[in-house]
Design a protein around this nucleic acid. Structure first.
Lengths: 232, 232
DNA sequence: ACCCTGATTTAAAAAAAGTTAAGCCATGTT
DNA sequence: AACATGGCTTAACTTTTTTTAAATCAGGGT
């Protein structure tokens, strides 16, 4: 039962601390992506799916607060933990206002960090579902706004129906990984039967049509398993 | 999700910890009143209505236990959580005797505090309605005064009928989330049948017309489920 | 190569949502 | 009492979204 599979987005400009943290977290079983500034972190956030953010407050190019605000716009739930230099109480206040789940003042012990991550994650996601609360995604040249149900490429907007949007979101949550047929059917169509499976096929075909304008994006079938959305 | 609307009375004499806690709790959606000593806390308790008390044990003028005893005299049910300096068993015992619901020893993580509040509140008040008693809303560039039944954008006022206002309020209570068709029908139209559903569609159309002056605001349909009001 | 099953595509039918306008009914006015 | 008004419902019709159907294609094994 103990299979957390929390993917961590870590933004830390000090390469020393950054690599140490990444190594530590991965040793503890959390796949971690390290970004060396806020801009890079935000781009990474849109492209892949994470379950936890650790953001240094002071970073070049884009500070941690700005990143957090941008992330909060499209994901109200993902846990955010700030790393802030000691003595900066105002920082803490600012961060909490944005909706941080916790903060740590440097220097801190790795163990403390681990404790916080586990505590937060225990509260925020009792069930391991594979689905995020993200609502905005990048798929190659496309951008996909799930809550507005809009798929855009170079100012060309395609309005999506709710079923189309649900399915595409589920594919995005597992980008470059297979989405199980029966999982999608149970979650979106509420029943895994022959007719719903045919219906799903129709929607896959529609999504392929919408996504054909960027050749690097592919929605491929994994025979007998499900579908995989491929993008840079 | 849940919408607890818990008003918290927080008594903490350390201004640093006090403001941070207040900011954190408010960011998590709990309106919090901070008092810097026990006497002030008790006065505040008598003046306003709270649903939760967090009391530091050691405070000048009047300590947390005394406040708790006074509060318990007039309210046997309000949840009380103590903050105690260190692991003083006697303190804890004393507090529990008074009728505390929980305690936390400093230093503690915000996360831990939030967990306790949620746990206690779940225990003490099980019902969740989804509807607030809020009466004023911001919808993108619009402002909506439910009690006056007025929808305004840039000094342009639109008077709403009561059905229009009821429906819009219900959508605002679940902004960026789906309002279930049948829920709205049962609550506003008192019966979920074909004709009322058609009637509701007419009102949705009217609301869309009223809301068209801010393109970032969208009232979209979620097929087979209901409607979702999108706005930042 | 052959077969079976799963996947794909297109078209049609069915269900849900949207639009417009007419009608109804309670209220207040002359 | 007759009339006007505004709010709401009903009705008929259109459009969109989803499901079903049917014909064809592809993958993996014997």
């Amino acid at each position: 039962m103990e299979k957390p599979n929390i993917k961590i987005l870590l933004a830390e400009d000090d390469p020393n601390l950054g690599t140490i943290l990444k190594a530590y977290l991965e040793a503890k079983g959390f796949p971690t992506t390290l970004c060396i500034n806020g801009q890079e972190a935000y781009n990474m956030y849109l492209k892949e799916v994470f379950n936890f953010c650790i953001l240094d407050v002071m970073m070049p190019v884009k500070d941690g607060f700005t990143v957090a605000r941008e992330i909060r716009k499209v994901d109200k739930k993902i846990p955010i933990l700030f790393l802030t230099a000691k003595t900066m109480q105002e920082d803490i206040l600012e961060g909490l206002k944005i909706g941080a789940d916790d903060y740590l003042t440097k220097p801190f012990s790795m163990e403390e960090l681990l404790l916080r991550i586990n505590a937060i994650h225990r509260r925020t996601s009792p069930e391991i579902s594979g689905d995020s609360d993200k609502t905005f995604f990048r798929i190659g040249k496309y951008s996909f706004d799930y809550s507005r149900q809009i798929l855009k490429i170079e100012d060309q907007e395609q309005k999506l129906t709710s079923k189309e949007a649900q399915l595409l979101k589920m594919l995005c949550d597992r980008i470059n990984d297979v989405l199980d047929r029966s999982e999608a059917l149970t979650k979106i169509w509420l029943d895994d039967n022959y007719f719903n499976a045919r219906s799903m096929d129709v929607y896959i075909a529609k999504l392929r049509k919408y996504l054909k304008d960027d050749p690097t994006v592919e929605l491929l079938n994994v025979h007998g398993k499900g579908f995989k959305l491929i993008a840079d």
